[in-house]
Design a binder for these strands. Structure first.
Lengths: 118, 118
DNA sequence: CAGGATCCTATACGATACTG
DNA sequence: CAGTATCGTATAGGATCCTG
């Protein structure tokens, strides 16, 4: 079978690494809900996200936002208000996640029907 | 802003739940590599997958395969050999993941370029 | 060969209190 | 308001050995 050749195996390894790169960024309990919140409202402040994302603590939110920023998915802007507020928005690169999130949404709905039946 | 209405918030919550349903199934270190291995080779035995997926232990593989089967993504077949071998393949439902995996692959490549630069 | 049992570690995550 | 610090728990996952 052709897919047993070394070249095919190599291709497969590359693919797997790429998928894992994506999952490293997106997995965990909070990343996608956070991105989803910022994306949905376009611009969103720390405390707003804290409210949008059900059950998250400020410690986690702070930590996750930092990682997302490191990954260049979101942009952090300190607003000149009293007291200080901070605004988050998706970068161009962050917005490229929309397709994936849409796919995951669709699949999640189908999967729930398949497994739980509603 | 329209998106602040209650209905929109409700829609958003539904979406987030759906995405999380997907992530519950796919996240973790091994699920996608395992699916990817089975998908790539169409039919694959336990020990083959153990070899395909770099670094996984038999304990983990066994555990993950069970969960994937519970989620109706793979089918387990005991072959009548001596000693017994077991074959795994994707179900129809499991095959619907291909789009997502392809998306994640593509995005992973782009993301790596963006962050690491190669 | 395909797992199960056991033990262990590391990390994710939660709760609460505090600060510029 | 937007975090940080500290502490505690739960779960994911690793290593090794065992069995039908």
């Amino acid at each position: 079978m052709e897919c047993e050749t070394k070249q095919f195996r190599q291709e497969h390894k590359k693919e797997m690494r790429a998928v894992q790169d994506s999952m490293d960024v997106l997995s965990g309990k909070w990343k996608i809900p956070i991105i989803s919140s910022i994306c949905f409202y376009n611009k969103r402040r720390f405390s707003d996200i804290l409210n949008d994302v059900d059950g998250i603590s400020n410690r986690m939110l702070s930590k996750e936002l930092k990682e997302l920023e490191l990954n260049k998915l979101i942009k952090r802007t300190v607003l000149d208000t009293q007291p200080v507020t901070v605004q988050y928005q998706l970068t161009e690169h962050g917005r490229t996640l929309k397709t994936i999130i849409d796919n995951l949404t669709e699949w999640g709905i189908a999967h729930r029907k398949k497994i739980i039946g509603r």
